[in-house]
Design a binder for these strands. Sequence first.
DNA 1: CAGTATCCTGGGGGATACTG
DNA 2: CAGTATCCCCCAGGATACTG
Lengths: 122, 122
Amino acid sequence: MTTPETGIVYRSDCPSRPILDQIADKWSMMVMAVLDEPRRFNDVKRRLEGVTQRVLTQTLRRLERNGMIVRRVLPTSPIGVEYSLTPLGESLREPFGRLYAWTVENVDEIQARQQDYDRRAQ
Amino acid sequence: MTTPETGIVYRSDCPSRPILDQIADKWSMMVMAVLDEPRRFNDVKRRLEGVTQRVLTQTLRRLERNGMIVRRVLPTSPIGVEYSLTPLGESLREPFGRLYAWTVENVDEIQARQQDYDRRAQ
DNA sequence: CAGTATCCTGGGGGATACTG
DNA sequence: CAGTATCCCCCAGGATACTG
């Protein structure tokens, strides 16, 4: 991304593009929100109603790969795994929180606009 | 979404879920960022290097449906179309800006973490 | 200029079953 | 408990061609 005198241009090779793609998705945001403290796999799963094991695992792996969370195997029997935010992940919670708060605040108006639009287009 | 005494739980019927799905995607964020002032279709397209007409049109329609932008047909020849943010869309730029700024600030560290992870997993 | 109209492909994500 | 392993389906999104 650059800002030439002609205005903002988003270049296709800007590394923020794939990052945004990996980070700004529904499940990642919810996982991050849920990890306000270290939690175990099934604990996270229970808090994200409707997520499947497979999708949750993928999401956790991706977040781990991007340095947002740490996976720690607990020496228990049966095995336990605990996920927690890294400082990097912690620093993302603030912008995520803003976006989520905005969504909650404006959900009603958005749904109203959607209905207007759909009514016009029939 | 609720916050019971046991902690945060994201219910599957929370209306913010589909909203986030529609709003927090790569192209929507870039379109919103580019619309710092009213711009015409091809102007937006030129600033989003790599986007196809089809995808841009879809993104613009969705943003319009959600009340984020307004589409205005200009009485020119040949026809011109101008897109601009609504107050609602304007209010979303701040949280988006935060998220984008975070991405830019942390892109290097994220890529480093990715390489670490990939090296470990080979 | 600002779009539709087709066609096509990858992969996100749900369902289900199995396991160290 | 915390995962893999399959199977499958849908559709976001790219490529390309055409148009009022």
